[in-house]
Design a protein around this nucleic acid. Structure first.
Length: 422
RNA sequence: GCGAGCGUAGCUUAGCGGUAAAGCCCCGCACUGUGGAUGCGGUGACCGCGGGUUCGAAUCCCGUCGCUCGCCCCA
């Protein structure tokens, strides 16, 4: 029994878990770099002020790990990266060549109730394009997200990236008589429409102050899947995503609004088609954020993807390949006390020749050592006993085929390599 | 912050009033210079914790802590 429990909502990464994290990181890195993005990172701790302005009350006041440091400063474990990004861009906005294309993968913390698809400590991919205010910039970000999904084996049948534009939504709201002062209310209603039974949602909307006529018109807007045709920016965005080859992944969805306060235009959200999970990634355009943290205005657009939901989705679609958490494919056994040092010497020779080698560091029965080799998935077992030493050879056993060869010591490493590369 | 369910060996679970069981894992033996299979044996649990009911509690009741799931919010 454990007397010291881990902190609620944190995760231990055992080697098998680490293998998945590394696999995911490699996919993210590959996709990001294919689009020409540079890797960066920010601090894990930020001053609370950074988030206070723009992230949204719920996220800052209730869902951040906030504490006072020894100097009396209020700091927060970062709940998201975009404000740090905006701050970093703000300090160098005059010297960075634009467009600025940056990506990152690191840990974040939110003080929430852990449940399916959500923990208090998670890793997140961020990819952002700043300095360019065009629908094509948004399209590129969407395409990067789509190409990531493709690279991990999730087809357009399995996942969709839903796109909307808050500007379009706002002008539509104005048209049906819901003015700017009631936009925040309307956004809240829209955001939750898919999560409630229609009757309940309608009742709630009326309670919140919508008239019956407004409610009907609002429902009409949300059911209009062709509304993007009246938006020049969205037309351009969808034309660009088609040209980028990801049209199958992308769909207009008037109910996507996103919760964060700093989004100013387009918003994106990737979801599994079956609707079994929370959003896989989310993002949008934030043209005022850099100036809000004290810089010259720099427009930006980007997405963030957590590692937890994507893992659940990948498991659902059986898309995670077998991952090897053990680097060494060669195990050098230790025959007896007398050959312990020679075995260690041989191990070193193998390593010098570039092999990843694990050495069994105690002279136990060969049976046990081979059992271990089999158990940990080694491909090759190396035996160096008195017979081999007398003959100047090494026994190389291929654990997959069960065949073994006596090889002159000087050729042993090359022989082992040949087996591994066959 | 609100609501529900569940806590039995390292893991997955059975037992649901009569003094704790299986599978997996781990260790040993058959096999003292050869792994995977099989067989045999072994280590390992104050049944989350505290209190109550009872002749007797893993089992029923209350409390507490923890975990999981849903709401809120969001990756």
């Amino acid at each position: 029994m454990q007397s010291i429990r881990p902190v609620k909502g944190t995760r231990d990464f055992f080697p098998e878990d680490m293998a998945f994290r590394r696999w995911l990181y490699a996919k993210i890195q590959k996709t990001s770099e294919r689009f020409g993005y540079q890797e960066y990172d920010g601090p894990f701790l930020e001053r609370l002020d950074l988030y206070a302005a723009k992230s949204g009350d719920e996220l800052v006041k209730k869902q951040s790990f906030v504490f006072e440091d020894r100097g009396g400063e209020m700091v927060a474990l970062r709940p998201e990266l975009t404000p740090s990004l905006a701050r970093m861009i703000a300090t160098k906005s005059k010297v960075l060549p634009r467009p600025i294309r940056w990506w990152s993968f690191g840990p974040f913390w939110r003080y929430e109730r852990p449940q399916r698809g959500r923990s208090r400590e998670f890793f997140q991919w961020n990819i952002d394009l700043l300095g360019i205010e065009s629908p094509e910039a948004d399209a590129e970000i969407v395409a990067a997200g789509a190409e990531f999904l493709r690279s991990v084996g999730l087809s357009p049948d399995a996942v969709k990236i839903l796109v909307n534009d808050r500007m379009l939504a706002e002008s539509q709201l104005d048209n049906i008589g819901i003015g700017p002062e009631r936009h925040p209310l309307a956004f809240r209603l829209i955001d939750r429409r898919d999560r409630m039974p229609p009757e309940k949602w309608a009742d709630w909307s009326l309670e919140e102050g919508l008239s019956l006529g407004e409610l009907e018109q609002l429902q009409g807007l949300l059911d209009d899947r062709e509304a993007w045709r009246s938006s020049a920016p969205l037309q351009r965005l969808f034309e660009a995503t088609d040209t980028l080859g990801v049209g199958d992944y992308v769909a207009f969805d008037p109910t996507v609004i996103r919760g964060l306060d700093y989004y100013t235009g387009t918003v994106f959200e990737a979801r599994d088609a079956a609707g079994n999970f929370r959003a896989i990634f989310g993002g949008g355009r934030y043209d005022d954020l850099v100036s809000a943290v004290g810089g010259d205005p720099v427009p930006g657009t980007g997405i963030a993807m957590g590692d937890i939901v994507i893992r659940l989705v990948l498991e659902q679609y059986d898309a995670i390949p077998p991952l090897d958490a053990r680097p060494a494919k060669v195990l050098v056994t230790t025959f007896d006390e007398g050959t312990l040092m020679p075995a260690l010497q041989l191990t070193t020779e193998f390593r010098v020749s570039g092999l990843e080698v694990e050495w069994y560091p105690v002279a136990e029965k060969l049976t046990k050592q081979l059992k271990y080799a089999n158990r940990v998935g080694a491909r090759i077992a190396v035996i160096l006993g008195p017979d081999e030493i007398a003959a100047g050879t090494v026994t190389i056993r291929d654990l997959r085929s069960g065949e073994q060869q006596s090889i002159p010591r000087g050729e042993a490493a090359a022989y082992a390599k040949a087996i591994l590369e066959a």
